[in-house]
Design a protein around this nucleic acid. Structure first.
Lengths: 218, 218
DNA sequence: AATAAACACAAACAAATGTTTGTTTAGATT
DNA sequence: AATCTAAACAAACATTTGTTTGTGTTTATT
């Protein structure tokens, strides 16, 4: 459905404003990443459904239409953000699973990396955690599977930790979700440059959570 | 801006389908509550921004336009849901603050009611927790203040508990957010009728969290 | 200097959005 | 039976939505 009327009859021969506030951008394959970064923050703030491509364009400093030179669709942006996060989580799980350590140590390390990703990439993690429901269908199922895989792997560590006598015999699901959930305030509340450093936070949080898991008598 | 053309030239004299699947609804002031309930579930599932009034109407079994006989706007629906939840939370805090009990007991009771509201009114709580950012301006600020009031009150209990020697000397903010956050998986994962009852869940969760807070030597 | 590719924008698009209007129906009240 | 009112709907509304098209400009390559 092409436009019926001539769309651009030469805008008064404007030599695209190289004067004034013209940023010196040259070739910019980084524009794509800028769009993704800005989208993560926008989607976190306003939610995917309440964020328009024009809003996003305004933040990036680009016309909405121009962004389609760098990305395929609004949906694709969400996909990239969500799967970049879930891929990282899965990778961390796999690494920790193969560590030489006891289960309490593995759980500690996995939680540590989990929190670290939040303090480093808070916006993206937030979007992956809260906006994934807006994914469209082939990817929606894939994402759910990835999350399930992570939860299963994490649960297995807890289960084995209990079997090995390293942890209290709590309900595995309750423990799993409590840990994963407890850690999520970081993504919502943490701002770098508060009087709480990322390292302090990490330690305080882990201490608090694992004191509830650790066997008091061992 | 009234319609310029005659909008409804008598639809072939249809006596509004009292036959077939006509529910026996009489006067219905309950329609408003139905709309609010259905909205809570829809907003939880799809997010406020991705939920349309037509979607909502379909669930309620009403034309989108018809709902405006019961509610003022889409925004108002969100407001009602959010403040109904925050009002309840504030009320619970006030009640617990005035209890005759030590701080650990107060914290336990507050958390217990907190969780109970989630298992009872999961959808509304979820919306209040995740979609409040979509509130429009006079109410947005009010909501933030209510949340702050709740957090401050909760933090005070923790602080006093520490001062009284009932709790470990953890960072108050970390403890507060960890507790509030840990509890939130209930709203996301809990479904009544799983093999985990609401009462079991409540106890397991509290045990796990407060074992990390309780002084090991006292 | 010429060419080709990457990229930005204006204009337009169809579809979807929240909401209003006018009218009709059904139940309650008199 | 006549009247009133709450509530349902169809149609339309003005905007906003995501996206496409066409054109011009910029940059890198030759």
């Amino acid at each position: 459905m092409p436009p019926k009327t001539a769309p651009n009859p030469a805008p008064t021969a404007t030599p695209p404003a190289t004067g004034a506030a013209r940023v010196v951008k040259k070739r910019r394959p980084e524009q794509r990443q800028l769009i993704l970064d800005e989208a993560a923050h926008l989607f976190k703030e306003r939610g995917f459904g309440s964020s328009s491509m024009r809003d996003l364009g305004a933040r990036v400093g680009l016309d909405a239409a121009s962004m389609y030179n760098h990305i395929k669709s609004k949906d694709e942006i969400l996909e990239i953000i969500c799967f970049q996060v879930s891929d990282t989580y899965i990778a961390q799980l796999t690494e920790v699973e193969q560590m030489e350590a006891n289960y309490l140590e593995k759980i500690t390390e996995l939680l540590r990396r989990h929190v670290r990703l939040m303090t480093k990439d808070g916006a993206a993690v937030s979007v992956a955690n809260n906006e994934w429901k807006a994914l469209t269908e082939p990817r929606l199922t894939e994402f759910k599977q990835a999350r399930k895989r992570y939860e299963k792997g994490f649960a297995a560590l807890i289960e084995q930790g209990i079997a090995a006598g390293e942890l209290q015999a709590v309900n595995v699901s309750v423990a799993l979700f409590t840990l994963l959930s407890a850690v999520r305030w970081v993504e919502l509340w943490y701002r770098p440059g508060r009087n709480l450093s990322a390292a302090e936070l990490e330690n305080d949080l882990l201490t608090m959570l694992l004191d509830g898991l650790k066997k008091p008598t061992a």
